[in-house]
Design a protein around this nucleic acid. Structure first.
Lengths: 323, 323
DNA sequence: CTGAAAGCGCTTACAG
DNA sequence: CTGAAAGCGCTTACAG
């Protein structure tokens, strides 16, 4: 029914193997033959059968994308954005994407295992980092090719990963505020878990110290108070929205009374005024790089695991102001 | 290298075709044989090769999920949520998911065409409705099985689709407000495009009329003013956040001065106070039903296209109050 | 209830 | 530069 390589071969007056070679643009085929075969393909409307190609070649040319096993997490715009970027970059290299989602770590692991053992994917891109979970243990333990988006807590030297420089991000946040004349700067977070917090906070600390300023850490919760801070560095823009609300309730105006800078540049930063001054972490490039690195991993004989650092960019908006 | 059906057959002392039948739990195989074969599979750690199975059977058992061709749209939590639901439901029926994303309609169409012609998918679930675009024209014109999430503007009777009853949603919003004693109720939107607006607004109108109330439509923009309204029905919760901010700027308090009810129950409804009273549209069931309907479509010989209506639920929170 | 055989549509050494 | 052949790992009529 559907047109196959044989139909093309017959029409072009060549062997099927020649058609196959033309498809992959093999250098051993003469230009004359290529032209003839391509014409035949076009006339018949040939498209290759993916399953046949995968079975015969032994390569799936598809990457499994693993989402974090927590519902609320994946509702963040970040995930949809990076999925789009990954999909687009992959397509440019003619590779497909399969996705793995699950409510629990166990479900997720089952799915990842199945995908790999059914030979649906060549490996994975994992969209969460931090502490090793059973999914990543499985990948790591079985030497399955994968790259992490984010920074792992352990084995950093043995895992290919792609991330921003979160420590530098902490430094830069302080720098921006200090340039505006702020000295009493506090770091605000709702969680002390994870590498992202650890690194951004460390960078903050280092920069404060190097400027002879005393740093303070504010945990956002019930009785949140900014003390004598004149500027806040908030761990991400969703929390910033809550902080903003609390400040308003305390009759503190941003940026007039207090400056606020944050990270990620998600859609949450421009929903309400003041629009947030924030660091864009370049999700599109994170996604593109993760695909690139994965493909490198697959093709390289050497098992060299490196970290790729994606640059960020300060987006100046309305929430910071000179003191 | 990997263990195949042949290895299992040898170990179990049967023919490969028998193993194949055991895998699909064919009723023609004796229980005794099934037990023996399953034991052999377990001992060898057999998993079937997806590509071989697809090639031999001619069925891909995978569904292509098509995202809307607009960036900002897909950043809404809705899409990640429904993708997760679709993936989970599909997995329960042993079907896989492939995704199609693109910045433009043209890109998207190219991708959809390729997926289908390479025989990677049996058909599609399209995550946007409204007016027909070139992607859906292609699907419709070529008789490719697909289901729509949402309500199409045309051919409603010839397209299988899954949606909430948006008109009823409009009715119910008025009902809730009327029960609280409100009479001056306005509908607020930032766009008049699309079936969602059309239907919710129509339901609003009908219900207002049947109660002898005069309905009014407010377009949200520069000089937004609520007039003499005491209650607002806002098209979705993202816009609600902006409306809330504008009201605050006008020294109007929600819900004390004015009530606000909205739709979708996304994460945006509980970021800031007042938490929004909203209708949950049950995204998880939308996703699950779209998979179910798609599978029905594939297996049915009759080409009967129906609409599936997913129930919604009122989530009472802080933004509405008795007058 | 089970086996033997052909076939799905490609790829890839091997020859020439 | 091209062809003939074997093989990838399944499924599925066909027989018995």
């Amino acid at each position: 029914m559907a047109v196959t390589i044989k139909d093309v071969a017959k029409k072009a007056g060549v062997n099927a193997s020649t058609v196959s070679r033309v498809i992959k643009d093999s250098s051993q085929i003469s230009d004359r033959t290529k032209t003839i075969v391509r014409k035949a393909m076009a006339e018949l409307g040939y498209t290759r059968n993916a399953a046949a190609q995968i079975l015969a070649s032994g390569k799936t040319n598809t990457i499994g994308v693993v989402f974090p096993p927590v519902d609320n997490k994946s509702s963040q715009p970040f995930f949809m954005k990076i999925l789009t970027a990954i999909n687009e970059t992959a397509r440019e290299s003619n590779v497909s994407i399969a996705i793995a989602t699950g409510h629990t770590q166990k479900e997720l692991k089952k799915q990842v295992q199945l995908m790999y053992s059914e030979r649906r994917v060549d490996g994975f891109i994992v969209l969460y980092a931090g502490k090793t979970d059973s999914v990543r243990e499985y990948l790591f333990g079985n030497n399955i090719p994968y790259v992490l988006v984010g920074t792992p807590s352990e084995h950093q030297n043995e895992i290919t990963h792609v991330d921003n420089d979160n420590k530098l991000l902490g430094h830069e946040a302080v720098r921006h505020l200090a340039q505006l004349g702020h000295k009493n700067i506090a770091f605000v977070t709702d969680t002390k878990e994870g590498e992202v917090f650890a690194e951004r906070f460390q960078g903050f600390n280092e920069e404060m110290m190097s400027r002879g300023l005393t740093s303070s850490l504010l945990k956002f919760g019930q009785n949140f108070s900014i003390g004598k801070a004149t500027a806040l560095i908030v761990i991400d823009d969703v929390l910033s929205l809550r902080v903003l609300e609390r400040l308003k309730a305390q009759n503190l105006s941003v940026p007039d009374d207090i400056s606020l800078i944050t990270f990620n540049n998600s859609i949450f930063g421009t929903i309400m005024h003041p629009f947030l001054t924030t660091f864009d972490i370049n999700v599109t490039r994170l996604g593109a790089a993760s695909v690139g690195k994965f493909l490198d991993l697959l093709n390289s004989t050497s098992h060299y695991h490196e970290k790729t650092v994606i640059p960020f960019e300060l987006i100046l908006r309305e929430s910071t102001k000179a003191k």
